[in-house]
Design a protein around this nucleic acid. Sequence first.
DNA 1: CGCTGGCACTCGGACGGACAGAGTGCCAGG
DNA 2: CCTGGCACTCTGTCCGTCCGAGTGCCAGCG
Lengths: 338, 338
Amino acid sequence: MLSERRLQVLRAIVQDYVGTEEPVGSKALTERHNLGVSPATVRNDMAALEDEGFIAQPHTSAGRIPTDKGYRLFVDKLAGVKPMTAPERRAIQNFLDGAVDLDDVVARTVRLLAQLTRQVAVVQYPSLTRSTVRHVELLSLAPARLMLVLITDTGRVEQRLVDCPAPFGEASLADLRARLNSRVAGRRFADVPRLVEDLPEGFDVEDRGTVATVLSTLLETLVEENEERLMIGGTANLTRFGHDFPLTIRPVLEALEEQVVLLKLLGEAGDSGMTVRIGHENAYEGLNSTSVVSVGYGSGGEAVAKLGVVGPTRMDYPGTMGAVRAVARYVGQILAES
Amino acid sequence: MLSERRLQVLRAIVQDYVGTEEPVGSKALTERHNLGVSPATVRNDMAALEDEGFIAQPHTSAGRIPTDKGYRLFVDKLAGVKPMTAPERRAIQNFLDGAVDLDDVVARTVRLLAQLTRQVAVVQYPSLTRSTVRHVELLSLAPARLMLVLITDTGRVEQRLVDCPAPFGEASLADLRARLNSRVAGRRFADVPRLVEDLPEGFDVEDRGTVATVLSTLLETLVEENEERLMIGGTANLTRFGHDFPLTIRPVLEALEEQVVLLKLLGEAGDSGMTVRIGHENAYEGLNSTSVVSVGYGSGGEAVAKLGVVGPTRMDYPGTMGAVRAVARYVGQILAES
DNA sequence: CGCTGGCACTCGGACGGACAGAGTGCCAGG
DNA sequence: CCTGGCACTCTGTCCGTCCGAGTGCCAGCG
């Protein structure tokens, strides 16, 4: 097991490296942190840390930089979450309070996160899985064409066109609308299939085909739209990545464009609490030199979606985690209010 | 006036520079294009072109590169639009035909454009300005809370919550819904304010407040949502920009994040036909080293929105213009069909 | 008059050696 | 177990040299 001082040395290395972006040597360490020992001693500690795989030197006779494993230890044991200051918290709340609708909430959240962390922000739209149905509306656009509108308790609205197998009268439409709502309004998405199963039976034979079509469209919407959307922002911050530019940044930009990749990334993160994935811990290769800090957010106790940031492994973890947590908390509040 | 050959020299310079990304000298020019004259002659021509401001040398004794003015001349007089090949056109059509809804059309268009041009693609959502109202729906969420849903002929759906000043009965709701639709369905957005002006008069006194609120929300939606949204893609292609990386790419990324900037950019472009804005012709400073090729697209004869690409001034203009034009055309078709 | 070949000139990029600085590992002594 | 000292190694930088590409200009040719 590593001695207390060695852990301190590791912590100091991470902090300095994050700050300066340059390999840090033993002398500089003793100068900037009062460890109470000489550079030589620190060197011994560093050698030990290197043996254990927590730090590495880019080349002989350069300082050390933390490895992914080193960051992992740092995050797990050595660093807390740096809470936001009161003014910061107030600013967050004010900014988010100005939002007019769900899209706006998400858009503002992305901006905010990107600004606070100076990194790339990713915010998932509230998922439908755990949502409940607020209302289902049916509109007749043409004799055999309906529009199905689904409104969720998170304020999301989804619409679908439905081509009916047969003309569908206004009376039937009103009937279906009423029955459908009485069954599913306020219910969870997951329960809807069961609840509407026998609905066609109450209708005239000639209308059953249409009812069935509407229902299957509704179910499809519930499932399909679970492929959650997300919004990203702050890509300009990628330019602060490192010096060896195009090589590092390209795969990251590509990953960011592939929403599938990002969704998977967020999906893999733990459901509760904050998750930090460091470097190679990310399954997607293009993100091997980045870390992802993510957390779920939601209106009640349950998380309905996730948000987070993507940045270089060399990031300010305590600060980033603090910002991510704070933003998630306030977004949750906003959603609860609306 | 420039002689025919000098124009050819300019064309050759642009083509070579676009291909190689390196300043092009007189000798290389005569070798790769059979101009029928010697390097010395070309040098004279180049000196003349430089005097006129069409080309420049980064430093003494390097080759020449085109200036913005040079590209302008090239685009206006020397280069046509390179049409897509038949297989390419088929591929475009197939790809776009797979779209399931408006969002998907836009998303696919962005991907397609980015891929075809290997640049950053920008696609504006069909504007509401020239659209017509397909249907207005009102749903009662709570005794004094309505949801207003607006459906346009381009398949766009907008929704708004309305807090009523007084409870509003189901009967009144149905009445309002019917009257509203009979007046505005199929009409242009611009005409709506005039058409609903006197609507509250037909209602009971106690309902008029609510009706007025609904109407003003509707009008707000029409105006507000004219702040068009847009989608961008292919940002990874920015890495192919140049060698002097962070400096060039950063302002571009920033501009791309500011949708306002992009919308203004597209807005300034001519309404009909293809617009090419080269380097400093772009009002926004961050895009001074980029060119923007944009064109309107729409379902009928009229353009309902614009799309385009953003790339380095050193881009393949004929090819890019061909791709942009072709994509705009097919998107228009898709919209017309749906 | 326009094109051409020749020539001197300029400049940037590549190559290579010298050098300074930072950092290390190791060892002997406290 | 810590510390100071020492030799070593490597990188980054600076500088001088050289080469090649490209230019501008000029005299000559058709």
